[in-house]
Amino acid sequence: MRTLLALAWVVIKELYRRKDFYVLFVLTALITLVLGSVNFFEDTLMVRYLREVTLLLIWVSALVIAVVTAARQIPAERESRTIFPLLAKPVTRGQVVLGKFLGVWLASGLALALFYGFYLVVGAWKAASGSLALGLQAFWLHWMMLAVVVALAILGSLLFSAPSVNSTICFVVVTGILLLAGHLNTLAAAQPGPGGALMYGLYFALPHLELFDVRDLMIHEHPPVPLGPLVIATLYAAVYAALLLVAAWWVFRRKPLST
């Protein structure tokens, strides 16, 4: 555990010493503030559109931060060759994968907390904070979803040599899942034959990241999610993240690290 935390610590330090994360945050804040100060039809009571835009920006930014940070970890270690002194220490490759995962996940959690904090500030500014319980749930679910995304990007970074290729693939896959995975059963039902069976297969195999998106509940002030489903969703994310990490470890374990 100490090894994992030490590895994670390096990742976190790197994230907050780089500039790109701040760029995303400042852009999100700027766009939200400009949008929020616009006056539609002399009515200052409108807040849902602002919630929608802010949350969309938060989702996009968090995805960018998580995928890009996760995708570069192991390739950067190999490129700068720090992987060699690292593995020459009593550190296993499994620990490297887990430590990197933990680092990126914690780091994106910190970034996410900052973004959701901003969301709360916007709510307070517009005097429409919404349910705090739901806000916390949204943060938690979002963070759990990022665990799966980070694990996916780390696995990808071991399969594809170029981090940019890996990042792009991860974005496409995650966006595709977010938009389509929930509807694959509908599509499958509409399509007879092997195509439909394939879609059903995908429907049950793919991680349903869209489960973790409770933005509509927040925007439209619906009640919070009950505890049971929340726990199930958390476990669901943990299982997928673990499966992806095991796959990553399995790929990395057999990989010759030549100079």
Partner: peptide, 14 residues
């Protein structure tokens, strides 16, 4: 053991 690799660029941000 202690190992010194050749041509390594250690963590730039630390």
């Amino acid at each position: 053991i202690g190992y010194l690799p050749e041509l390594t660029y250690y963590y730039r941000f630390l």
